[in-house]
Amino acid sequence: MSADSQPAHNLIRAPRGWRRLRGWANRVGALTLVELQKLSHDRTELLIRLIQPALWLLIFGQTFSHLRIIETGSVSYLAFLAPGIIAQSALFISIFYGIQLVWDRDAGILAKLMVTPTPAAALITGKAAAAGVRSIVQVIGVLAIAYLMGVALTTNPLRILAAMGVVVLGSAFFACLSMTLAGLVRNRDRLIGIGQAITFPLFFASNALYPVEIMPEWLRWLSAVNPLSYEVNALRGLLLGTPSNMVLDLAVLVVAAVLGVIAASALLRRLVR
């Protein structure tokens, strides 16, 4: 019997439903592990990245605590600042993730990945998840420094795990933002410049350093559309127990991460060309 006359029921069909979702999740998990294995080539990277948040807490935080020029209600300024520094350090890790994508393109790795059955969305999600896992180390490091400084943060393990989940969501969005920019500019040096140009505006146009109430009106508007503000709000609610709209904060972070994956995936093939 010729190949053309084989019964239709003998043809191999593409997986659907749950099998397709499971296959997609397996690819995302594998790509995440590949990204995390890159850390084995430079194990000191994560320790070096803890220097900046430590300086923010030890110098900036303690100085402004003594000056007492920022009113933070019933919590100390150091306690108010710690969740903001966690979000900031995760932002600094994620916002340059698009550069790794450009390096993969220049090394020919990205072109090889794009000809496999792996969807572009799975590739982007894997890299975004890896950025989130890397950022968890920042959560642990900043919490350890804060505890050593006597900052009154929660010791409830469930709340700490939830805070790690919040940081993963925030990091995933900012990593996708960086990879979206990589698809637009397609140039490593230009991407580094853009990343440096938007990092501090994102940080200072949030509530990481000061309450929204003391901001000028125009800065409040920027803070309201900045996902970093919602990440910081959720972290303060979990680590400090301050009032927060957790449902809104998580909804914004989830929607932002999903839209980020969609945008970065749509531009991924443009980066390979």
Score class of each variant (00 low, 15 high):
Ile59Trp: 05
Leu50Val: 07
Ala205Arg: 00
Val166Cys: 01
Pro117Ala: 11
Ala144His: 05
Ile109Cys: 06
Gly241Lys: 11
Arg105Met: 13
Gly126Asp: 02
Phe80His: 04
Thr125Ala: 15
Gly73Val: 02
Arg269Lys: 12
Leu11Tyr: 15
Gly170Ala: 10
Glu45Gly: 14
Gly193Met: 09
Arg43Pro: 09
Ser89Leu: 06
Ala122Arg: 04
Asp189Cys: 04
Gly29Phe: 12
Val254Leu: 10
Ser94Thr: 06
Thr155Arg: 14
Gly84Gln: 08
Asn187Tyr: 01
Asn245Ile: 08
Pro53Met: 01
Phe173Thr: 05
Ala79Phe: 00
Ile12Lys: 14
Ser206Arg: 00
Gly108Gln: 03
Gly260Asn: 01
Leu248His: 12
Phe173Asn: 02
Gly132Lys: 10
Ala25Phe: 11
Arg220Asn: 05
Leu169His: 08
Ser171Met: 01
Ile136Gly: 03
Ser76Lys: 11
Leu250Asp: 05
Pro15Ser: 08
Ala79Tyr: 05
Thr118Asn: 10
Arg270Leu: 00
Met246Ala: 08
Leu148Thr: 13
Asn10Tyr: 13
Pro243Thr: 10
Thr72Phe: 02
Phe173Tyr: 14
Trp221Gln: 07
Ser178Met: 12
Thr32Gln: 03
Gly73Phe: 11
Leu91Ala: 08
Asp189Glu: 12
Ala128Trp: 13
Tyr147Leu: 13
Ser206Met: 05
Arg159Glu: 10
Pro157Gly: 10
Lys127Glu: 09
His66Asp: 15
Val168Thr: 06
Arg19Asn: 13
Ala256Cys: 09
Asn207Pro: 03
Thr72Met: 03
Arg20Met: 14
Leu11Ala: 15
Arg49Thr: 03
Ala234Pro: 01
Ala256Trp: 04
Met179Lys: 03
Gly170Thr: 08
Asn156Phe: 09
Val258Met: 12
Leu47Arg: 11
Leu143Phe: 13
Gly237His: 04
Arg220Tyr: 09
Ala14Phe: 10
Val142Cys: 03
Pro227Lys: 05
Leu248Pro: 06
Ile194Cys: 07
Val252Phe: 07
Thr125Ile: 06
Ala129Lys: 00
Met149Gly: 02
Gly61Ala: 13
Ala266Val: 06
Leu158Tyr: 05
Ser178Asn: 09
His9Asn: 14
Val34Met: 09
Arg269Tyr: 13
Ala131Cys: 06
Asp249Cys: 14
Ala87Cys: 07
Cys176Ser: 13
Pro243Tyr: 06
Pro119Met: 08
Leu47Ala: 14
